[in-house]
Simulated assay, not measured.
Amino acid sequence: MNSGNQRLDRWRRRTEFPMLGAALLFLAAYAWPILDPELARPWQTACWALTWLTWAAFVADYSVRLALARDRWSFVRTNLVDLAIVVLPVLRPLRLIQLLSIVTVLNRRLTVSLRQHVTMFAVVASGLVLFCASLAVLDAERGAPGATITTFEEALWWAAVTVTTVGYGDFYPVTSAGRLIAVGLFLAGIALLGVVTGTLASWFVEKVDATKEETTATRAEVEILMAEVRALRSELSGTPAANGDNVPAPADDRSG
Rank of each mutant, 00 (worst) to 15 (best):
G127I: 00
T199R: 13
L96G: 08
V163W: 06
A159Q: 02
D170M: 12
S134D: 01
L192F: 07
A191V: 06
A136D: 06
V118K: 11
L110N: 11
V195C: 12
R179A: 14
V123M: 05
K212Y: 08
V105N: 05
L130D: 10
G189R: 13
W203T: 12
T164R: 13
V174T: 13
I190W: 12
T199E: 15
G146Y: 13
S101R: 11
I149V: 15
I97E: 00
V166E: 01
P173Q: 05
A125W: 09
D209G: 02
E153D: 15
L185P: 00
Y172M: 10
A177T: 15
L138K: 05
L110G: 02
L187M: 14
L94A: 14
A182P: 03
A188H: 09
A155D: 12
A177R: 15
A182E: 08
W157V: 07
W158H: 02
A155W: 10
L185R: 03
A191S: 05
T104D: 04
S126P: 07
L200P: 00
F186D: 07
G167Q: 10
D170Y: 09
R142M: 03
F171L: 11
I181E: 02
G184P: 00
R179D: 04
A182D: 07
E206S: 06
G167A: 15
T165Y: 12
T165G: 07
A188T: 01
W157I: 09
V124D: 09
A159N: 00
W158A: 02
V205L: 09
G167P: 00
A210V: 10
A210T: 10
T175A: 08
D209C: 09
L99A: 03
L100T: 09
R179K: 15
I97H: 00
H117C: 03
S176Y: 04
G167T: 11
P173S: 00
S134G: 15
E141N: 06
A144T: 03
V196Y: 14
W157R: 09
V124R: 00
A182Q: 15
D209E: 07
F152G: 06
W157K: 08
T104A: 09
G189Y: 06
L180F: 13
H117M: 08
D139R: 12
Q116V: 12
F186P: 04
I149E: 07
F131V: 05
Y168A: 06
L100W: 08
C132Q: 13
F186Q: 02
E141R: 09
T104G: 03
A160V: 08
V195R: 04
A191R: 01
Q98L: 15
I97V: 15
L130A: 02
V174D: 06
T151Q: 13
T175Q: 03
L135T: 07
Y168T: 15
V137D: 01
G189I: 13
L180G: 14
T150C: 06
I190N: 07
V103Y: 03
G189E: 03
V174E: 11
G198D: 04
L99P: 04
T111I: 03
V166I: 14
F186E: 00
L200Y: 05
P173R: 08
R108C: 03
V112L: 10
L96Y: 05
L156T: 15
